[in-house]
Design a protein around this nucleic acid. Structure first.
Length: 256
DNA sequence: ATGGCCACCGAGGGTGGA
């Protein structure tokens, strides 16, 4: 079973990339973040045409999350984690006995910003939801764009004064993991751990990145994970000729 | 070269991303 998280930075701009990814990698479950469209603009038909179903939680311009899958979703919850109902940052469903919770965590912008407090409040809500979900679902995975690095080694430029790296947000992530989750990241000697590289300054080319896209599995699922891959090929402009502009995130896959 | 911000809205530059 292949489970993937990918922040696509606009589902419509990235549609050719997404369809190519589905055809080539054949994931069982592909969780997307940053759809940036309303439901009536969500490209359901082309996704169906390559043999996949989709559930999606949309808003205008910002945010938005979906789960694309081969199997039918059951027990679907739309935006179960929210501080205000406007922001669509969460969607959850069960696929063949596996509970999948897809998050686009608040970015937070800067430590002195109101958005940073919003991020911390949102993470508190997420923790409550996950705690409740763990009591119901032995096989569970929380995945998505967390906008937080778990460890100092997960940032090329680690500074505790910077967003993504600061103490409070990392403590919030740790306390979520302590509920009974396991970071599925498997270190590869050949690669730095990053999943996101800034568009600016040739960051990808210079491998100046951060590991902020995470898959956190419950013990019963984690013990079955046998592979972990970051699909950096999708970051190359030559990978998809129909849409040479790429997302700034790479898809991250586990197999179990 | 595996290369240098991108996408949104709306009509041009401001905003948000991470």
């Amino acid at each position: 079973m292949k489970i993937v998280t990918w922040n696509v930075n606009s589902v419509n701009v990235r549609l050719p990339n997404i369809l190519k990814y589905l055809r080539e990698y054949q994931p069982d479950i592909l969780c997307l973040q940053e759809l940036k469209c309303m439901e009536d603009k969500y490209p359901l038909e082309p996704i169906n045409d390559v043999g996949y179903q989709s559930i999606h939680c949309c808003q205008k311009t910002y945010n938005g999350v979906s789960i694309i899958s081969k199997a039918k979703a059951t027990d679907v919850e739309y935006n179960p984690v929210n501080v205000n109902d406007e922001e669509k940052r969460s969607i959850a469903a069960t696929f063949n006995g596996i509970r999948v919770i897809n998050f686009y965590v608040v970015n937070g912008q800067a430590l002195n910003s109101d958005k940073y407090n919003h991020k911390l409040v949102w993470l508190e809500q997420a923790k409550k939801y996950i705690k409740m979900q763990l009591t119901k679902h032995p096989k569970l995975i929380v995945l998505g764009d967390f906008n937080i690095v778990p460890n100092e080694s997960d940032a090329h430029d680690f500074s505790s004064d910077d967003i993504l790296c600061s103490l409070k947000e990392r403590e919030a992530l740790k306390s979520i993991i302590k509920l009974g989750l396991y970071d599925s990241y498997i270190e590869k000697d050949t690669d730095l751990p990053y999943t996101w590289w800034d568009y600016r300054g040739g960051a990808f080319h210079r491998d100046i990145g951060y590991r902020i896209d995470l898959l956190l599995a419950s013990h019963n699922l984690h013990k079955e994970i046998r592979n972990y891959e970051v699909h950096k090929d999708t970051r190359h402009k030559s990978w998809c000729h129909e849409q040479p502009k790429t997302s700034d995130h790479a898809p991250v896959m586990i197999e179990c």
